[in-house]
């Protein structure tokens, strides 16, 4: 467990070093403040509106897929460690698990969520129902 204590020391000391150096530069650096310095950079123009706007965020589905696959990877790491001892049984079990997830990946792939321009959904039955 002492290893994790070392890791904690790494995180605390690292955070301290950053804060310390930033504070040090506060003391060393000159301050000649005027309001124009605090305008967000927009290629020299005055910024138009805020940056906290809504925009079409492509690939948000990717974040969901990532979540699923990341959890899967967490499951696979312990499996890989004991794989040598478990042999065929472990292999078959993990194969089934991976297969189910790959079906999910294939579904997303075919549905077009991995493309920049998503194919339009085919709604032939809707058009028929409307009598067009």
């Amino acid at each position: 467990m002492i290893g994790f204590y070392t890791v904690l020391l790494f995180i605390l000391t690292g955070a301290f070093l950053v804060s310390f150096t930033v504070a040090l530069s506060r003391f060393l650096a000159p301050t000649k403040d005027y309001p124009e310095k605090h305008i967000p950079y927009e290629c020299g123009e005055l910024p138009q509106g805020e940056a906290w706007i809504q925009f079409n965020n492509r690939f948000y589905i990717v974040a969901l897929i990532f979540l699923i696959f990341d959890v899967e990877v967490i499951f696979m790491y312990p499996w890989a460690v004991v794989f040598n001892d478990m042999g065929l049984l472990a292999f078959i079990e993990m194969f089934i698990f991976i297969f189910i997830l790959l079906v999910g990946l294939a579904y997303v792939w075919v549905k077009g969520d991995l493309d920049w321009i998503k194919p339009k959904p085919r709604l032939e039955h809707l058009a028929k129902a409307k009598g067009e």
Binding site: T21, V22, S25, R26, L28, A29, K37, H38
Partner: peptide, 18 residues
């Protein structure tokens, strides 16, 4: 870099920015 002025934009979220 050490002796450069540290600028935080006026409209920024200061806590997260730091």
């Amino acid at each position: 870099l050490l002796v450069k002025e540290d600028i935080i934009p006026a409209m920024a979220d200061r806590t997260l920015f730091k």
